[in-house]
Computed example of a mutant assay.
Amino acid sequence: MINTLFSFGGISIIEKIERSEEEWKKLLTPEQYAILRKKRTEMPFTGKLLSNKEKGTYNCAACGQVIFESDKKFDSQSGWPSFYDVMSSDSVELVTDDSHFMHRIEVICSSCGSHLGHVFDDGPKPTGKRYCINSAAMQFEGEE
């Protein structure tokens, strides 16, 4: 299911997806469920999308909403796919995360509420941001 961002007269509308935890468990792999719904993190340098250099979009693995474009991906050498900007500021929600004795900003899909990763202020220009995202939280859709 691909969600679309609708815009009417400058007002953006995101289709909200709500499912029970049992429904999410049926739709997602165990790894995806742990990351997207339970806010776990995959081991660094293990994600299938880390070295992907194809052109296309990176979509939320839970609901299909487009989150990132390939031209904003860069090699941060952090062990996770990294992007310097999102497709649209409406595609994610940023939430303070003070877990694990750290202060971070969590990146959440604005459509389904799934955990994608975190954003840091040590990325490249033009934004200075590094969206550090779990591979299992995304599905890649190549250009045709």
Rank of each mutant, 00 (worst) to 15 (best):
V86K: 02
D98F: 13
N3M: 14
D98I: 00
E31H: 09
E144W: 05
K26N: 12
K16Y: 08
T96R: 09
S82D: 06
Q32E: 14
E143W: 03
S12M: 01
Y131F: 14
A61V: 05
P81C: 05
I14V: 15
Y58M: 07
H103S: 14
E93I: 08
L36T: 01
D85E: 11
S7A: 15
E141G: 00
G79P: 07
I133M: 12
Y131V: 06
N3Q: 15
Y131N: 02
F8K: 14
G123L: 02
E143R: 08
Q32V: 09
D71G: 04
N52S: 03
C63W: 01
E18F: 09
G56L: 08
Q77S: 15
G47D: 12
S114D: 03
E93F: 01
C109K: 06
D71N: 14
F101M: 13
Q77T: 13
R104F: 12
S88M: 01
G142Y: 07
P126T: 07
G9Y: 13
R104S: 08
Q139S: 12
F101C: 04
F140V: 13
D90G: 03
F6P: 00
S114V: 07
S20G: 04
L5V: 15
L50V: 10
F120G: 05
N52K: 06
S76N: 12
Y33G: 04
T29P: 10
I14D: 00
G9C: 08
M138P: 03
E22S: 10
C132Y: 04
L49D: 09
S99E: 08
E54M: 03
K16N: 13
V86I: 11
I17P: 13
T127S: 07
K26F: 01
